[in-house]
Design a binder for these strands. Structure first.
Length: 274
DNA sequence: CGAATTTGACCAGCGC
DNA sequence: GCGCTGGTCAAATTCG
């Protein structure tokens, strides 16, 4: 709502695929599936501009899924987050909840909310895009833990909230389905990964890392991002690219190059420009 | 049995 | 001030 206004500014600033939006969710839903030139999602662009698979072929990206790996030490993460919130207070007594415990809990909660509030002002850049998919939880190479689900106003489909399960990584994503076109999944990423993509760590499965580090376009790794999300996750990763500005720049280039017959020039741009 | 998900409760921010 | 909505927490439940 009003929150969205602030967020929209971020979208306008950072998201190369969602232009001129006053309300990200509403605009997406209202404008879909019509393809206003002023608004075109990555997936729609690929769906309409050229054969979807040809892009990934051009990128030397073959499809792969279930490339998930890294084990998650969630308990320690939980503890760490708790400690950061109530570092001075002891662990809550697990026994019977008397009033003092309850008030302690409330106090803890208020501290958490205050911390959240603070974080909100320094919100991470967000990137939203649409994907045509039957599946809600799209594979992007990272491990996510669902921490909430909310009914969306004017939509029969709920919105799910996910956090990256990697320690100290605060990247979040929201996933919801368009009520106008249920085949569309709206995914919003917030923040940048501070770690390698788990899929990448296992056997160089990402051509993006490989290419980015070596700039060897001829090398065709056996697998890689199968979906736009995966591509964007790679691009979002600090290990792959550094800042939202370059990210946007590259994405804009991506859009431009997708219209060109020679897709290899895209790779050149993606991996040589910083 | 530990990890992941579900779900109701809670809170902040905004509009009226 | 009240109601609505988005976002998050955390206990309960389910899953592997």
């Amino acid at each position: 709502m009003a929150n969205d206004e602030g967020e929209n500014k971020e979208y306008q600033q950072y998201d190369p695929f969602v232009y001129n939006q006053l309300d990200m969710n509403r605009t997406i839903l209202q404008q879909q599936p019509s393809l206003d030139p002023a608004f075109m999602s990555f997936t729609n662009f690929m769906d309409t501009s050229l054969e979807y698979n040809s892009v990934w072929r051009a990128l030397d990206v073959s499809c792969s899924s279930s490339e998930l790996i890294s084990p998650v030490d969630d308990m320690s993460k939980k503890k760490a987050s708790n400690a950061s919130v109530s570092s001075s207070s002891d662990e809550a007594a697990p026994a019977a909840e008397d009033d003092s415990v309850k008030s302690k809990k409330e106090e803890k909660r208020k501290k958490q909310n205050a911390a959240q509030k603070k974080e909100k002002r320094e919100r991470e850049p967000r990137f939203a895009f649409l994907t045509k998919s039957e599946i809600d939880q799209l594979e992007d190479g990272y491990r996510w833990r669902k921490y909430g689900q909310k009914a969306v106003k004017n939509s029969p489909y709920p919105r799910s909230y996910y956090r990256c399960t990697s320690q100290k990584c605060v990247v979040k994503k929201r996933v919801e389905r368009s009520y106008q076109d249920p085949s569309l999944v709206i995914t919003t990423y917030e923040g940048q990964h501070i770690h390698h993509c788990p899929a990448t760590l296992r056997g160089h499965s990402s051509p993006f890392y490989a290419s980015a580090s070596t700039s060897t376009l001829a090398t065709a790794p056996s697998s890689g991002p199968a979906l736009p999300q995966q591509l964007f996750s790679h691009l979002l990763s600090k290990n792959c690219q550094t800042d939202p500005t370059s990210m946007m720049y590259q994405n804009l280039n991506l859009q431009q190059h997708l219209q060109m017959p020679d897709h290899h020039s895209l790779l050149q741009d993606l991996f040589t420009q910083k």
